[in-house]
Amino acid sequence: MNYNWDWGILFRDPYLGWMIGALGWTIVISILAWIIAFSLGSLLGIFRTSSKKSLRLIATCYVELFRNIPLLVQIFLWYFVFPEFLTDEWSRWVKRDMPYPALTTAVVAIGLYTASRVCEQVRSGIKAVGEDQRQAGRAIGMTEVQVYRFVLLPNAYRIILPPLTSEFLTIFKNSSLALTIGVIELTAMTRQIEEYTFQGFEAFTAATIIYSLVTFTVMALMQQIDKRTALPGSFSKGAS
């Protein structure tokens, strides 16, 4: 291998600042997309298990649609195709005038895509809590909404904490897809540094370490939370 090593590059101006800023964008995309994915996914998960056939159908269609198209293609659909179906005014706003058009599009696309996966997790959690718990809740006169609020969801979230952690980490990794529409997040930045300095090896290594560190930190953190929230008498399953 014929390569000029220069690890110092990572700590030199402006590259250090670039990397930190890019990590910031990665985290911003991940957290905002997660907010969408978690709230919409939970709602869809409730729909998917509800007693109303129409709600179940809506959630099923959503899940099938969003998980059978590659995320990258979905990002392109939101970025290039969706604005064309709006009125001129709105189209201009989405393409140019809204704050951070590319970043916002990436957040929405990743959020909506991941919502379909969160929905399936929430559904499996509610299924795991069981039909009998639902009946027990109904039997003391609670409405369906109350049964979800006080019985099914608190238990379901506890059960699916490990897979939900994985879903968040999936978002964290998938945030790199934002680079395809020009968002300079962590992965894109390594590419940019490579092009500026030809020290690609160092930049890729740095990004790799950062991604791994964040992932392992989040997993360790969630394992602690999993232990803390475990009910007395039940054993903790640990993050997967």
């Binding site: 291998m1 014929n2 390569y3 980490l169 990794k173 998938n174 945030s175 790199s176 897809l177 680079l179 992965t187 390594t190 590419r191 490579e194 690609g200 090896f201 890729f204 990004a207 790799t208 991604y211 791994s212 992932t215 392992f216």
Partner: peptide, 24 residues
């Protein structure tokens, strides 16, 4: 655990960049 912690795009970049370097 290592590979599961990385974005696929980054891995693609890695090998796009690394393989020719190794093979020469």
């Amino acid at each position: 655990n290592f590979f599961r912690s990385l974005p696929l795009i980054l891995v693609i970049f890695w090998f796009f960049f690394l393989v020719p370097l190794i093979v020469g």
